[in-house]
Amino acid sequence: MLIALLADIHANRQAFTACLDDAKARGAERHVLLGDFVGYGADPVWCVDKAMELVAGGAIAVMGNHDAAVNDPTIRMNEEAQAAIDWTRGKLGQVERRWLAELPMEHSDEGRLYVHADASQPAKWIYVLTVEEAARSLRSTQAPMTFCGHTHKPAIFSTTPAAKMTAFSPVTEVAVPLHGLRRWLAVLGSVGQPRDGNPRACYGLFDTEKKEIIYIRVPYDIEAAAATIRAARLPDFFAERLFIGR
């Protein structure tokens, strides 16, 4: 079975749609949504409604820090991100806000752990960027595979029974086997706001038979996504960065 892994959608309707279409064309049968449905982008209602629809159809979803911030004003962010969340809060209806509030922090399924950020303290929203950060996350779980997002930068880490770590930047469209005696942590790139220098939307496909993950980059209508952000009078920087993937 092919599972589509989508993280950090950030209210980017065009990118979300493009990834869902691509995953469908490749035969994905399930969706795992790794959090941060809102923030930065200007289509929060559509994106949350779409996520709700997918979950109603069997998809798994976990909470991201931006999702949490919608209902929890104590979560602090930088000024611009905070402005986007305040704007988002006003746009979302009661139904969407409740759905976001009730998202689980993590979800386990057949040895796969899904979480938005570091798994050792999910509510602290710690980035997994370095080998040390990956080691901390991997130490906190027995799951053979962890899938997370949050950094907007694709990466794959592994650890052996002797706690030796490896780090790797996945190559687009090249399947990486996640088996063997080691345990793996796959950090997905971002659907709605890539920051690894590649402006294409990023998502992953995991093949449960082959135990392989493949990172996919999908071109989408960046102009339209940026125009929506500008029309909503959100910080212009959120629109500009989409074009350069930073």
């Binding site: 080998v131 794959i156 592994s158 052996t160 030796k164 770590m165 490896t166 780090a167 790797f168 190559v171 090249v174 990486v176 086997p177 080691r182």
Partner: peptide, 10 residues
Amino acid sequence: QQLPDLMQEE
């Protein structure tokens, strides 16, 4: 070149 190098870090 396109897969994790398990020997490198080990």
